[in-house]
Simulated scan of single mutants.
Amino acid sequence: MLVGAELRRIAALIVMCAVATVAAVADDSSTTSAAGFSCSSGGPAYEVRSGDSWYGIAGRADVNPSALLKANDAAVTDVLVVGDRLCLPSGADVTGICTSYTVRAGDSWGSISTRVGSSPGAVAAANGAGLDRTIHPGDVICLPSGASATAASGGSAPSGEAGGSYTVVRGDSWSAIAWRADVSMRSLLNVNGANARDVLLPGDVLSLPAGAKQPAAAPRVVLQAAPTQGPCGYRDTWGDARSQGRRHAGVDIFSGAGNYVYAVADGKLSGRSWDGAGGNSGNAWMLTADDGNKYFYAHLSDFAPQLRVGSRVRAGQILGWVGDTGNASASHLHFEIRPGGGSPVNPYPILRAQGGCNNGRPYTQPGGWVPDRTR
């Protein structure tokens, strides 16, 4: 009898342990659900949209494509499907990929979610974080789909002293206006109570910060061909800080290594630089179009062998191939536009109006031949 009682006591303990284990698993499951999708990279999460590519996402997040692939243990050949959740590398610029919010003093996942009409778990999950991750004033986070960006902004009033006004014209952007006014984009946004995702429409009247120059009218440039073969990605980084105190005077088009680089207009190759120690541009061409506009192409892996300085080219003709020569951490084309051969202007709205890259059949070359899609 003593043995039987002992057996019954042991059996009861086993049942109790089993129940406790099930309860613990259930509790752990609910915690995971609340925390949502989590990124070990330390960066925010991103949900793949229609038309996305690895290079496109990396370009908009201003990160190295290889860093994006590493953060997701992926290869560039892996197919992206709409709705996939990706982790962005630490330090990614989320303003180019989502509706963003800058954390303020006293904010928490809960207070932000209340302000934007979402849930704490959804806001945290949009950033690949758990609810236990600490956020700090000045952090820029992504808001989940459907969240109210207007509520997030809190109806912020303009700040800073105004110094004149400017009327928006077609092709303008916040960064382009700031560059031509010789002010920081942040001061321009502040004096208008705006954020970088606010859309500018022709006819809008903006306030300029005190001390700003009156922006000259944006010159009109129309590209006759795309500068690269797609697929590719690019974003507006005009005027962004670069090493050695430089400011970015072009647009970085992230495309696969070896993709064709094309003449964007009929004209003559007026300059060439070769990759060498200490050079920023690497292998580069300067194209002077027949209308006087100049176009600068940098970081090419190689030049088309039949071309020389002085060679005449036509729109769509292959000038070389996308590479990473010079001061480049990933394969891309640095592309500049200089209307009338003068100072560079923001190429982003001009490139966007043209369609970005040639995602169809490669352009027909002189002599009538059509190249394969890649080198």
Rank of each mutant, 00 (worst) to 15 (best):
D252Q: 08
V116C: 00
V313E: 07
A277S: 13
S187M: 08
T32G: 14
I177E: 01
P227L: 10
V19A: 14
P362H: 03
S90G: 11
P158I: 03
C98G: 08
F37I: 06
T32I: 13
Y166G: 12
A162G: 06
E6P: 07
D240F: 09
Q229L: 13
D78H: 00
V94Y: 05
R246S: 12
L13M: 04
G256W: 14
Q354I: 02
C98T: 05
I337W: 06
S111A: 09
T31E: 12
L201M: 09
A129F: 02
V221T: 03
V19G: 08
G278F: 02
G316I: 08
R361A: 15
A34Y: 10
L131N: 06
V309D: 12
S184L: 01
A218G: 13
H334K: 08
A216D: 12
K213H: 08
A20W: 04
E6W: 15
A61L: 03
A304V: 04
S329G: 08
P209V: 05
N72A: 09
W369H: 09
V205T: 09
S329Y: 12
G154A: 05
D172S: 06
A315G: 10
H248E: 10
R352I: 03
S40L: 13
R235I: 08
S273H: 02
D132P: 05
W274S: 07
A216E: 13
G203W: 05
P231R: 01
